[in-house]
């Protein structure tokens, strides 16, 4: 039921990773993604996995919920794996296992699939430990330099947070509209695809009309309180880098250094 819909997957608890500045987490995620892409062999990926597992351990989030994030892209992983397995460009000296499948192809397919899984698991650590609101704050703060070239950073962040704020509201409204149309004999779960799509009109139109109405009301409410964008606005919760962020940054730097060394076979 839509009523159960919760946005994001934030896991509410307090931990070292939860308390990190969202900007640190965003930047370190980018660094981690770079490391996963830079890693040229399985040792590099293993180092990234180790880094990830340590991050999970320090986030007090059950490993299971991090693994759950992979479930949603399982199809993509499988697709990538099979594509690489069957369409691997055969080179001189490759050992054929059977038919078109070579040992090198299998290894490359496994490598890409592992890379994909590591990427998704890494991003899910961020969304599991950061509320959407502080994530938006972090993005706003990181994009701040762009405002010097007249890019509307604050407005963009505002749009993001308003969108996030209204997801549960609109989900509830959708639920109500579905019930109301069902009571009028609306049938949303029988017939072929086209019939079902057409059956969505009585839900989508009231929903859109409602969204516009809400947008209007919100706009008026903001006007009434003289909201004027980013100028001279202060924040209730100020983002601040702490000692924790330094530790996390050093730790991530170690990962990147390790991956580069592993690539060159130095270790």
């Amino acid at each position: 039921m839509l009523r159960d819909l919760t946005f994001g997957q934030y896991y509410p608890t307090t931990s070292f990773v939860h308390k990190l500045d969202p900007r640190t987490k965003l930047l370190l995620l980018i660094a981690y993604i770079t490391a996963v892409f830079v890693a040229g062999n399985f040792y590099g990926l293993a180092a990234s996995l180790l880094f990830l597992l340590i991050a999970v351990a320090f986030s007090a989030v059950p490993l299971w919920s991090v693994l759950k994030s992979v479930k949603s892209i399982l199809f993509l992983v499988l697709f990538t794996f099979l594509l690489n397995l069957f369409f691997y460009a055969k080179k001189e000296g490759d050992t054929t296992l059977f038919w078109v499948i070579t040992k090198e192809g299998l290894i490359s397919a496994l490598f890409l699939a592992s890379r994909l899984i590591l990427l998704v698991m890494g991003s899910s650590v961020l969304t599991l430990t950061t509320t959407p609101v502080s994530l938006t704050d972090g993005i706003e703060s990181l994009l701040k330099p762009l405002s010097y070239i007249k890019f509307p950073v604050h407005e963009l962040a505002l749009i993001m947070s308003i969108a996030l704020r209204f997801i549960p509201t609109l989900a509830e409204e959708t639920d109500r509209i579905i019930r109301a149309q069902k009571a009028r004999g609306g049938d949303f779960d029988s017939g072929n695809v086209f019939k079902r799509l057409k059956a969505l009109i009585p839900i989508l139109i009231p929903l859109l009309v409602g969204a516009f109405r809400r947008a209007d009301e919100l706009g008026n409410a903001m006007d009434a309180r003289c909201y004027s964008g980013s100028k001279n606005r202060t924040k209730y919760k100020k983002l601040k880098f702490t000692f924790r962020d330094l530790i996390a940054a050093l730790f991530t730097a170690a990962l990147i250094a390790g991956v580069i060394l592993l690539n060159n076979g130095a270790i």
Partner: peptide, 13 residues
């Protein structure tokens, strides 16, 4: 059994 929800005007389409 007819059912008129709260603010039924929001279901017009």
């Amino acid at each position: 059994v007819g059912m008129v929800f709260q603010y039924p005007e929001y279901q017009l389409f």
